[in-house]
Simulated scan of single mutants.
Amino acid sequence: MKIVIAGGSGFIGQKLTNALIDDGHEIIILTRKEKTSTGNISYLKWLEEGTTPESQLGNADVFINLAGVSINDGRWNLNHQKQIYDSRMRATDELLKIISALPQKPSALINASAIGIYPSSLDAVYTEESIETANDFLGKTVHDWENKAKQVETYSIRTVFMRFGVVLGNEGGAFPLMSLPYKLFAGGTIGSGKQWVSWVHIADVVRSILFVIENDKIHGPVNVTSPSPIRMKDFGKTIGSVLHKPHWLPVPSFVMKLALGQKSNLVLKGQQVIPQVLMKEGFTFMFPSLNSALEDLLTKK
């Protein structure tokens, strides 16, 4: 298939591109930087004045939208929040414009999203059928992002919202910072420790996207989390156990709030999220348990 990726140079995008190439697909990456096409990967400039990728794309089977300023980088001041929000809205608007100009429409748009759309809770269990929406910054951002991407359904294009949980990988995301204190013998419970961590290994993120591309019955929200969410206290204890390092130095909530501001909600609050759609459709997780995921990430060279 011919697959167009926006945000292909990011943490998830690079891993996904490699997997798609291994499967023999032709990849077009929309980028702001000048890059030389190699093998099965082509690069087209976009989001810059005078760029018209729609005139160079030809026909494409699937669009994947991973574009947007990372929520893991920088402090969540008002300016950074605006960048996070605006980058997602602008990139999705541009994709809608590109798709509208194509004579032959793609069969699917796979749009990144996040479990931050669900309200934080110590008791609730969320599936794709849950309709509650968080009223904080991340909840509003994800809600508006999905609604904008949903406009592509005007063209009868299958649209999927991949609601990523806490993605565990060594090359990016929040995990390197979460595991670092343990490597320095300073790991411990963050906040109350009762908050849920709905995590997923980066390998299963990539595999789930491939699964959704191939399974044309899947549409709408898809929770991309492992089937075994865990409380933060137990998450930390498992990191310590795998690394054979102590779990002893608690980090109070007020310290995290002082250090990270509103961004501290990413670790001080959480949701118990179940990947009901993936499980129902027969997706098999490579890393269903946290212990197996951490063994892979922390002990393999």
Rank of each mutant, 00 (worst) to 15 (best):
R158T: 01
T31H: 02
K97S: 14
K245V: 01
D144S: 04
K15R: 14
V206A: 03
R32I: 01
T52L: 08
D73G: 01
S37T: 09
F11L: 14
M162K: 00
P246S: 07
I28V: 15
I64E: 01
H201Y: 04
I239A: 09
A149G: 03
V4Y: 01
L278H: 05
R75Q: 10
M286V: 10
N72L: 12
D123Q: 13
W145M: 10
K280R: 11
S107D: 08
W196R: 06
L266E: 03
I21P: 09
A134R: 05
L249Q: 02
A259D: 09
F185G: 02
G13S: 09
V224Q: 08
F63V: 00
K183L: 10
R90M: 12
Y43P: 07
S226Q: 12
G270D: 02
Y85Q: 06
N79A: 13
R207F: 01
T17Q: 13
I230N: 04
L57Y: 02
R231K: 13
Q271V: 06
L294P: 07
K301W: 12
K233M: 08
L298S: 08
S121M: 09
A114L: 06
K82R: 11
K245L: 12
G193S: 05
G13Y: 00
I98N: 00
Y118N: 10
E281M: 11
K97P: 00
E214N: 14
N265R: 14
E295Q: 15
E128V: 11
